[in-house]
Design a protein around this nucleic acid. Structure first.
Lengths: 164, 164
DNA sequence: GATATCCGCTTGCACTATGCAAGCAGTATC
DNA sequence: GATACTGCTTGCATAGTGCAAGCGGATATC
């Protein structure tokens, strides 16, 4: 049988799934950092996650339906992690969380630029970004046109790093 | 000296402060549930928090600047917990988190009504609600006029319970 | 004015999660 | 054929969680 939940409150349920020190950080790295493999997530982690914790979180996120795992066609032993639609829809949560951290916690300016841009862009920009994530992770059809939100976020970040 | 942070990323910093099983649930109870004392938070907790954990979280949230503690003027030994401005500004985070849980997790309809209402109301309603929280917790001047957002949320919840 | 109850916690203890370091078998590279 | 990279696992010490019971002081009840 399925695991019992503490309550049916939507906030509580979200906390049960996401409320720990690492889950959202791993999702952030896959979503904004473009990390797709285990070693990438392990070695390029800003915060220095431990290998056993990463392994455990990837398993839990998979069984919770937030990420999927597939063999990388290029390298046989390499596993490719992708976000699911459920995880893509965490964008508004991560934006608000980033915005709050930016306002009240000692966030570094370079790393705050992206959060600020996403905050100022509003729901419309979030949706645009989510659509890009669907292209990358879920194989959705790309929408031709303006420079991607991901590129704009990267550009702003690089400029912030350069001028710091 | 102050504790070191894992990184300056705003999302990571928020996770460091809020990323555990109970912090956001306690804040939710104070914010939406109107719980202001220890016993209330302990006994009326939907999820059944343990007393030592509640004690620890209240201390941590206090030292993180999210809540304050004061003697209740009515009862000498009773302590009154209040939200700070920093916690009030968690409203958008909690709304998005509730909305996500409502969409993807087995949330009960009664408890989802408030999340839905806040989602549909958008940033304008959130700001209105935040202003009410400032009146309740920070002693701000009340704005006379329409029925409060808190009352509207309560009404929708009661109706949902009645019709279930 | 004695008794019982409520107040915000604390303590003890078992269990689980976390963090660190090392290791491992199966590719891929040179 | 040696070396390094792949996604992990294992062992172990420490920290956090969950449960039950208790505690001194303040308050309500009779």
């Amino acid at each position: 049988m399925a695991e019992a939940h503490r309550s049916g409150c939507p906030i509580n349920l979200s906390v049960e799934v996401l409320g720990d020190s690492w889950s959202l950080v791993v999702i952030r790295d896959i979503m904004f950092g473009g990390r797709r493999h285990y070693r990438q997530l392990l070695n390029e982690s800003e915060e220095g996650i431990a290998s056993n914790i990463l392994s455990d979180r990837l398993k839990r996120l998979t069984s919770d339906g937030l990420i999927t795992k597939a063999q990388d066609p290029a390298h046989r032993q390499r596993q490719l992690y992708s976000l699911t639609e459920q995880a893509v829809q965490l964008v508004p949560v991560l934006v608000q969380l980033g915005n709050w951290g930016r306002k009240f916690l000692p966030a570094s300016p370079e790393l705050s630029v992206r959060a600020q841009l996403l905050d100022e862009g509003g729901p419309q920009l979030w949706e645009e970004f989510m659509q890009e994530l669907r292209v990358i992770h879920l194989g959705a059809d790309p929408a031709a046109g303006a420079p991607s939100v991901m590129e704009r976020l990267e550009k702003a970040y690089r400029e912030a790093v350069a001028s710091s």
